[in-house]
Each structure stands twice: as structure tokens, then as C-alpha cells.
Design a protein around this nucleic acid. Structure first.
Length: 528
RNA sequence: GAGAGCGUAGCUCAGUCGGUAGAGCAAAGGACUUUUAAUCCUUGGGUCGAGGGUUCGAGUCCCUCCGCUCUCACCA
């Protein structure tokens, strides 16, 4: 491997990948032989390709009399005959700014003693033309050692080729990084969903829509933070290792601290620590972060996912509703999209205000039954394949609601005012004790946000905790009574509205991604 | 966890009724000074996911296992 064999690497390699790798290693050695560093160096003052494209108007035609005229609009997408246009202008030459760019070679063509590269950076693609004679002989030698995927830097003049394509006419090449693996197919990119997730680095480079999705995700998250900053929210970081996995009904991941010989759980929710901070006087508090639930995997579920929870002192669930709408609307604006989005083939209209309907209203509208008609509801439950026997009538209502109503909610729609018995940990409406001050936001059957007027009565909270734990089977009851949380409430948590939003699902909706795995950079996969 | 589907060259994909493994891109060699997925000529590249079985003969049929995708369940 170290001494260079006289025979062709193609014949000495055992398989095709070996051939690709051997060819690239061979070129790497030749680059070193030219006295160049195949792994590149610091490269100051380069422009992003987007910035270079912004200089397109500086490319002009200077006539013989010294006056400069702008070029016709070449960027309509169609190739044009720039050569003919130049011919009509008479004597003169094209002028353009000197630029420095760097990026990955995604396309490469040679036409005799001309080499065309298309390079890509974070912001876009641009064509590079390298004519023999315009660069040093060593640089032109180097073009023969370039492979798809290599990183190069270029100094050159911005101009246009005969077809009007904006192009950097290279004066100097700077080799940046050799790639030792071949890129995916150059038209189709990387298609295999498993490979796209496992090798996200390849996916991001060669599937621009994948990169755009993740860049949008970042913009959405930045937008949420900025919306909350407008309302004077304080962002905090709670612990991810919990001694008691509380705040939601989900199975936690279990881990262990060696030095303390202590069983620990990865957090399943952010709620209980944020509420402690409310007691501590951080009146508007939120955390956006990862939670871990030891549950199944589906297009809507990943074992670790990102959620935001926030608590607003002296507010209630109605304030949360306004805030939820503002967060989503501003996030859409931040992605540069209009309010009319597509979700697969289905449209979603995010034009505010979002619909608001009560749970009871929706239930009666979709089932044609009164919500207190237990017998009728039990009959309907049986008809749609549910088993209502022995269940509390409110539980049957909830199951029927999930079956008959939720999936048909196109939304965005706020479902408000849940039956109190379904949400024991929520504050009751002061005007009607059978109603819990809660809403959920649904979009195309997907639950996107969940909010409450929070219960801050420690005595009631404790007794409800106990009731809830009593009702749980042993293996489901991973959680224990969080006595410290109750103690915190006893020190006084202000009345407050609380809100949780599934960030991954929001990103799915705003990027038209049908799977959560398309909006999580590195979703959980089995061992390769 | 249950059911269905898929796995063929580095990548994207064909592969008929069970009869010697195919294409495009990529790679190697060559031609070309304005190409746009450049084009043209030549060449090499396969443990058909793994293992077992049926058969004269298996990419193809059967079984087991591994991985992925979809649907359902748990869940957000």
C-alpha cells in the first residue's frame, strides 16, 4: 500500500469501492508531489457563493470608449447567447469584480484545455471556469487530480460565459481537502432513507432540500426564542438526569451514576423544574430542549425529541392560546413562507386567527350525540370497535373523541375546555368546575401544542398525584411521588398559564416533511 | 411489540417462467478552449443483506436471522 505499484490500481484493487478509494489516494499522493497540502489551509477573505452572486450586476461590458454598460438580464433561467450580444456591442471587454470562493466540487467537465467546475458552499452553487493558460501550469496540472467531492478554493474574476452563466474565471486554485470516498449518484443524489440518516453528512451535501429543511429548522427555533424574548421570557436549562421522571405519562430511559451508585432517569418532560423556577420568581420561564421517552418509533415519534415548555405567571390558558398562535405565525414568517402551506398533498392555512372550538362542541358536532349521553356514546364506541365496558363514561368520551374527532381535525384548530375528569392536574374553570382550562392545538390530526391553566394548589396537587399513582400498574409507575415538587408549591407558585409545543412536529409542518426523521439530523438507528 | 413490503456494482435502478449478472452515473485510459446531468471512443468493476434448504441448476422458490420503510399499538 505504501510503495507505489507500477500496475494499474484498477486491476490491483479487490473490488469497485477499492478502485475508487485507490484512485483518490493515488491523486492525493500526486497533489503532495506538487508540493500542495491535500488537507488545505486557512483561507481568509473568501465570500459566500450567495454574496458572489450578489455581485452579478458588477459584471459589465466596457466599450472601447471606456464607458461601461450593464449586461442584459441573464438570470431568467434560460441559457442565452451572450456571445452574440457581445458581438453586437463592437469592440470592448467584459469587466467584473475579483472574488475568492471555496466549496465542494459537485460537477466537473473538461472541454479540452478548459475545465468547468461547479462548487457548492452553505449558501449555494456557482460555476468555475479554468482555462489553460489563465492559471499556472501547476494549477492546471492540479485540475487533473480533482475528484467529485473535493474541496477547493478559487481566486478569480466574476464574469459570464457565452451562454450567460455567472462564472468565476479562475486565476488561482487553492486545494483544500481531498475526499477519499466517492459521492452518490450525481443526478439522483442519495436516495436510500437509511443511508440518508446514517450518513447525514452526505445527505446534506448532495440533497439540497435536506439542507434547506435543517436550515429552516434553525430559523424556526431562532424565531421562537425571539418571540418569547418580546414577552420578557427567561430561557433556562433544567437537569436532564432526573431522580424522578415526572411531568408526563411516559416511560423513561434508565441510567446509573457510578460514584453515587444512584439510579437515574433521562427526563421525559421539562415541567416540574420550570414550575420550581416559577416559585423561585422567574415569572416567565421556558426551556427548549431534548426529552427522552422510552417508547416506540414511528414517523411521528423519535425516542429523543425537542420540545419547548413555558410558564407565564399571572396568565392563563387563553393567554397561552394567543402566544401559541404568535409563536407559529412568526416562525412561518421567519422561514420566508406565506401562511398557505402544503402538507403532502393537503393544504394548511395558517392565516391567523386559528379556529377555536370547545371539546364539547366538537364532540357533539362530529358524533351527533350529547356529551352527557353515556348510553348513546357507549353504543357508538362499540360500533367503531372500542370496548366501553367497565370504563368511566368520560374515558369512553375521550376514546371516541380520539377516534372520531382528532383525525378529522385539519386545523390549525385550538380544542379548548376539556372535561375536567380527563385532566386532573389542570385548574378547573372558575365558572364551571366540570371544565378544565386546557387546550390542544391540532393540525391534520397531529397534536402540536398542549396548554393549561396550571394547578398551583399544593394540597390538591399532592392528593391528585396520589390518586394517579394508585391507579397505575407497578411497571407503569416508574415515577414516584415528587415530594420536593410539592414542597416547592407549598412555597407558593403564582397562578400561571403553561404551554408545551413539540418542536420537531412544528418543523415537520413548516417544512412539509412527512417523517420526524427528516427533521432530526441524527435520528436513532440500530447498529450498522 | 404485531402485520405488510423492501435489500442486486461506490450511487440510482432493471432483472421475464428457476437456466452463465444488466443499464446509467461514478472509476481508469483517450479526444475536445465556452461546458451546463457536456459529448464521443475504450476498459475494468458483483459473497445479488447473512446463513441454511429444495433443485441437475437459485438474484428468482422455501426457512431462519440482520437492517430499512410503511401501517397499527404505546406516545407527543
Amino acid at each position: 500500500m505504501t510503495d507505489s505499484q507500477p500496475n494499474d490500481p484498477a486491476t490491483s484493487a479487490g473490488n469497485d469501492l477499492g478502485v475508487h478509494q485507490a484512485a483518490r489516494l493515488e491523486k492525493l499522493k500526486k497533489i503532495e508531489a506538487l508540493g500542495l497540502d491535500p488537507w488545505g489551509q486557512r483561507f481568509d477573505n473568501r465570500l459566500f457563493i450567495e454574496q458572489v452572486r450578489g455581485k452579478a450586476s458588477e459584471v459589465q461590458f466596457r466599450k472601447a470608449d471606456g464607458s461601461s454598460i450593464p449586461l442584459p438580464d441573464f438570470d431568467g433561467g434560460q441559457a442565452v447567447d451572450y456571445k452574440a450580444w457581445k458581438g453586437e456591442q463592437g469592440a470592448g471587454e467584459e469587466i467584473g469584480p475579483e472574488v475568492r470562493v471555496a466549496g465542494r466540487i459537485i460537477l466537473m467537465r473538461t472541454a479540452g484545455k478548459l475545465v468547468f467546475l461547479n462548487i457548492r458552499d452553505l449558501t449555494g452553487d456557482i460555476q468555475i471556469m479554468i482555462p489553460k493558460g489563465h492559471v499556472s501550469d501547476a494549477d492546471f496540472e492540479l485540475t487533473k487530480l480533482l475528484d467529485f467531492g473535493d474541496l477547493v478554493g478559487v481566486d478569480g474574476r466574476l464574469g459570464r460565459t457565452n451562454t450567460g452563466e455567472l462564472t468565476v474565471f479562475a486565476a488561482k486554485l487553492h486545494f483544500m481537502t481531498k475526499t477519499l470516498e466517492p459521492p452518490p449518484e450525481k443526478h439522483a443524489g442519495l436516495q436510500d432513507p437509511e443511508l440518508r440518516q446514517r450518513m447525514r453528512y452526505v445527505d446534506l451535501t448532495y440533497n439540497p432540500e435536506s439542507l434547506q429543511t435543517f436550515l429552516k429548522r434553525t430559523k424556526i427555533i431562532q424565531s421562537i426564542r425571539s418571540t418569547l424574548a418580546k414577552h420578557s421570557f427567561v430561557e433556562v436549562e433544567g437537569p436532564t438526569l432526573h431522580t424522578i421522571a415526572g411531568g408526563a405519562a411516559a416511560r423513561p430511559f434508565v441510567t446509573h451514576h457510578n460514584a453515587l451508585d444512584m439510579k437515574l432517569f433521562l427526563r421525559i418532560a421539562l415541567e416540574l423544574h420550570l414550575k420550581r423556577l416559577m416559585v423561585g420568581g422567574i415569572e416567565r420561564v421556558y426551556e427548549m430542549g431534548r426529552v427522552y421517552r422510552n417508547e416506540g418509533i414511528s414517523p411521528k415519534h423519535n425516542p429523543e425529541f425537542t420540545m419547548i415548555e413555558l410558564y407565564w405567571a399571572y396568565a392563563d390558558y387563553k393567554v397561552m392560546m394567543d402566544l401559541t398562535q404568535q409563536i407559529i405565525v412568526e416562525a412561518i414568517e421567519a422561514t420566508g413562507q406565506g401562511y398557505q402551506l402544503m402538507w403532502g398533498d393537503l393544504p394548511i392555512d395558517f392565516t391567523p386567527p386559528f379556529q377555536r372550538k370547545t371539546y364539547t362542541e366538537l364532540f357533539e358536532q362530529h358524533t351527533g350525540l350529547k356529551i352527557d349521553d353515556s348510553e348513546g356514546i357507549a353504543k357508538l364506541a362499540k360500533k367503531i370497535g372500542l370496548d366501553p365496558t367497565g370504563k368511566h363514561p368520560d374515558v369512553v368520551v375521550s376514546e371516541v373523541f380520539e377516534e372520531k374527532v382528532e383525525d378529522s381535525l385539519i386545523g390549525p384548530i385550538f380544542v379548548t375546555d376539556y372535561p375536567a375528569s380527563l385532566c386532573p392536574l389542570t385548574k378547573r374553570s372558575s365558572s364551571n368546575p366540570n371544565i378544565a382550562e386546557r387546550f390542544e392545538l391540532f393540525i391534520h390530526g397531529m397534536e402540536l401544542a398542549n396548554a393549561y391553566t396550571e394547578l398551583n394548589d399544593p394540597i390538591l396537587q399532592e392528593s391528585l398525584f396520589k390518586t394517579q399513582l394508585d391507579g397505575m400498574a407497578e411497571e407503569d409507575s416508574m415515577a414516584k411521588m415528587d415530594t420536593d415538587f410539592i414542597r416547592a408549591l407549598r412555597y407558593g407558585m403564582p397562578p400561571a398559564g403553561g404551554l408545551g409545543i413539540g418542536i420537531d412536529r412544528l418543523v415537520m409542518l413548516l417544512t412539509n416533511s412527512r417523517s420526524i426523521r427528516d427533521v432530526i439530523l441524527f435520528p436513532l438507528l440500530r447498529h450498522e
